[in-house]
Design a protein around this nucleic acid. Sequence first.
DNA 1: GAGTGGTCTAGACCACAAT
DNA 2: TTGTGGTCTAGACCACTCC
Lengths: 245, 245
Amino acid sequence: MPTKTQPAVRDEGPVPAYQRIKNHVIAQIQKGVWGEGDLIPTELMLCEQFGVSRMTAHRALRELTGAGLLVRQQGSGTYVAPIKIASTLIEIRSIAQDIRGRGHQHSCRVVSLQTVVASAEQSSRLGLRVRAKLFRSVIVHFENGTPIQLEDRVVDAARMPDYLDQDWSQLTPNEYLMHAAPAPTGYYSIEVKLPTADVAGALNVPSSEPCLVLERTTLSNGAFASHAVMWYPGSRYKLAGQIPI
Amino acid sequence: MPTKTQPAVRDEGPVPAYQRIKNHVIAQIQKGVWGEGDLIPTELMLCEQFGVSRMTAHRALRELTGAGLLVRQQGSGTYVAPIKIASTLIEIRSIAQDIRGRGHQHSCRVVSLQTVVASAEQSSRLGLRVRAKLFRSVIVHFENGTPIQLEDRVVDAARMPDYLDQDWSQLTPNEYLMHAAPAPTGYYSIEVKLPTADVAGALNVPSSEPCLVLERTTLSNGAFASHAVMWYPGSRYKLAGQIPI
DNA sequence: GAGTGGTCTAGACCACAAT
DNA sequence: TTGTGGTCTAGACCACTCC
């Protein structure tokens, strides 16, 4: 059955049933079909829809609950979690949804889009072929017109060949990735840095203002998907989330 | 049904079998019985030891793997994860283990230990009784003699009556909590702040140096356990971890 | 009482590693 | 070949919510 040509997303073998259900739920929320606070299908309905046992449907919903995407109430049902619970760190919702969830307006400005070749350092750190082709986007996100995040991202070009053709005013890179590389895992780090002149200019802060720098490498199905460096003005941002366990 | 007296640790009903196994594994790692890279018992051994089915033992190990505490290899076995994978954010390992894991020396200085009464604001934010009794500790942690974290913590006194009697040179508050309130969940936030004069003095940084401030509220078995504010010198620290999903 | 989620069992088949 | 983990089933009992 997996007899695709050279598709945008590599085929990593059969996808487990619980993962297919997770991807489906994530997609419905990403697409806005299921909104914040909405009641979603019960375990038994998902069992029928996907032809699985209840344990399997339950596992999918339990894991998404652990990730802060859903809220479950015994005797009542399963709901899309309110945004305040969603972890900004995982950013399974995008910064755009985050901002809109605060009732504010999101906009963005594309600073640059390029095709680049992985440096030796990148190749080894990210587990890429030497001189692998990457796409790089630099985008500033605004909340009510105030710059709130500078996002400098590279993605695997072989895996997402149409990355540069997206309309970033309609879709953030993160939202695009949720489709192209669903259910990511990976690593992050958070530190305080003074902005470079470019970053300070883009965020419209003095270069003396310390920034929160969130760096994140995401893998999907075990292979490199994306590396992002996100700069937030220290005076205007706070990262919050749920402790995962 | 909740008709208990006021015990040190509230009884929240029977603990699920998978949770008992998780607590056991966490405790073995915390106590150092199982060290980094060690092979731990197989699912079938845990099935026998705890008298559960394989699905239950598997769930416990899978969740701990998701939390970055274990690494599993099909065909081989389950191992304690290397420290670099352990999330500093969850701090399921303590800062002391973190520092020792880098091959450095950990020490600490107790700034203050007090009994305090929850303010109205704390009571509502943390879900406590009004004027609940709390213990507060303020401790500076050093890495090779350099101050690296100021930890300002309050815990529920009813739940941890012996909190103030601990020898903090032998055990960090976090390590104590891993015993008194195992397998915590909760919320965190991370932001950049300039230190107060007290904080700057304790960390031995100029009051112009921005700090990374990690605030964390932990619950155990659904009830408040601890609230901590941790200050890190921005120039000397980076938080890193795994993306949970 | 009917429906929901929370947990658990006792099997099963598979992919993979060690031997 | 044996043992490991990865997944999955078809039931079960329970606590809880809603009607």
